[in-house]
Design a protein around this nucleic acid. Structure first.
Length: 295
DNA sequence: AGGTGTCAAGCGTCC
DNA sequence: GGACGCTTGACACCT
């Protein structure tokens, strides 16, 4: 079992990740920012290894505008040395990587332009992981998408679109249940049709489910992962007290997390903590795992 | 130097 | 119909 956190590290450098506005795009700005972001990523990964954190989600913003028309730079070639070095570090230390494109990636969209943009964005994500030289256990997780007033049709559209995606994307993708539209059961149905692994978001599952217990949900999710996909990944968070349902907690709740880990029994997962204070909670989670003699 | 409106992109929900 | 949340933070312009 590995513990991870998403995208940014607040101890390495509070303002480590850089971006810029489309209006001020220039080749030199792009190159500066990407160089900065790759360096920041490298420092985060070094920090993580030092602390025993071996799972990390790389930000989709690592290469700004990578899938946009303005970007004509072959970044994978221009930064091949850095990318190879970082990839080597990841492999040497057996770090697990995931990426999570944001809400604009909708392969079941009813608009062809949105579908095209989504594919371009997925091509970029897959290209990034490929450029690091990582095998197919390093995944890109997406949600099913919108409902567009007809859930069955939207699921069908997801399935037929998925089948037509380039292999380079398909082999990296996993699908994740969300908190109000597509539940675990929906994802399992789609998984059966197209053979894509289902990444269980346990917090979203708590918000939106068909009455399956956590342990049944875990079991069903595991069954969708083939050995080439690696150990199943899952997203973990808990409800922030006194906030809207679905709001992620500020810092890990030791009691909830202990309970969750005990519930796993002998099942093995790489656990991504979607918690606001990032590496701090990851470190606390590792302490809890040590106490429980899980690592 | 500090404050703040706004940022490539979409969807659904709440008021 | 507009603001907001989503994983959400920081750029860029204003004073």
């Amino acid at each position: 079992m590995k513990i991870g956190y998403p995208c940014i590290n607040l101890s390495v450098a509070p303002l480590g990740a850089k971006t810029f506005r489309l209006a001020t795009y220039s080749e030199s700005k792009f190159k500066d920012v990407v160089a900065n972001n790759l360096n920041y990523l490298e420092r985060i990964l070094q920090f993580n290894v030092l602390k025993g954190i071996l799972f990390f989600r790389i930000s989709s913003d690592i290469i700004p505008f990578a899938s946009h028309d303005v970007c004509n730079i072959d970044w994978a070639d221009f930064y091949k040395e850095e990318l190879r070095r970082i990839g080597g570090f990841i492999k040497k230390n057996k770090i697990r990587i995931s990426m999570h494109p944001d809400q604009f990636v909708l392969i079941n969209s009813i608009k062809s332009e949105i579908l095209e943009n989504s594919i371009a964005e997925l091509v970029y994500h897959a290209k990034f992981l490929d450029a690091l030289g990582l095998n197919l256990t390093h995944k890109i997780q997406i949600h099913i998408g919108g409902v567009y007033d007809d859930k069955q049709a939207s699921i069908q559209r997801f399935i037929s679109r998925f089948k037509k995606l380039p292999v380079k994307i398909k082999r990296r993708l996993v699908i994740e249940n969300d908190d109000h539209l597509y539940s675990l059961a929906d994802c399992l149905h789609i998984s059966k049709k197209v053979g894509v692994p289902v990444l269980l978001d346990v917090f979203h599952h708590k918000c939106h489910n068909q009455g399956e217990s956590l342990s049944l949900a875990l079991k069903k999710s595991i069954a969708t992962w083939k050995s080439a996909d690696g150990i199943p990944m899952l997203d973990y968070s808990s409800q922030r007290p006194h906030a809207r349902i679905g709001t992620h907690i500020e810092s890990i709740n030791a009691r909830d997390f202990t309970e969750f880990i005990k519930n796993l029994g002998r099942k093995d997962f790489d656990v991504m903590l979607e918690i606001k204070d990032k590496e701090k909670s990851a470190l606390k989670a590792l302490e809890i795992l040590k106490k429980l003699k899980k690592i």
